[in-house]
């Protein structure tokens, strides 16, 4: 078996597992009782989505598509800081 068929087979098998775990994260986003639960679930969802984008760019054979994964992984971090700063400043009266 050559390299191309091996990579395509393994990555095609892995796609439904990724999608299932994204749906489990999304259940926590919808259901989470408080604000930090939802932010934490969106955070993990974004990081794993970035990894999924990197893997998918190998599968569809266009390596320049990897930049959107890098962008998503670095910008989803900002949501944490906004919400944390709001929650912390409201209690301290700032």
């Amino acid at each position: 078996m050559d390299v191309e068929a091996l990579v395509s087979l393994v990555l095609t098998v892995l796609i439904p597992l990724y999608v299932t775990s994204f749906l489990l994260y999304a259940v926590r986003v919808v259901k989470g009782p408080t604000i930090p639960d939802r932010v934490l679930a969106i955070d993990s969802l974004g990081y794993d989505l970035a990894a999924f984008m990197v893997v998918l760019s190998i599968l569809v054979r266009s390596p320049l598509m990897v930049v959107s994964g890098l962008t998503l992984a670095l910008w989803i971090y900002a949501l944490d800081i906004y919400i944390a700063k709001y929650l912390e400043a409201r209690e301290m009266g700032g």
């Binding site: 408080t34 604000i35 930090p36 932010v39 934490l40 955070d43 990081y47 970035a50 990197v54 994964g69 890098l70 992984a73 670095l74 971090y77 944490d80 800081i81 919400i83 944390a84 700063k85 929650l87 912390e88 409201r90 209690e91 301290m92």
Partner: peptide
Amino acid sequence: SSILLMILAQAGSHALARAAYISGE
């Protein structure tokens, strides 16, 4: 991206945990 993520993920989780503890959310 993996090296940057190794720094950023724990920083975000720690900030969120501190904010959730202080505000009692």
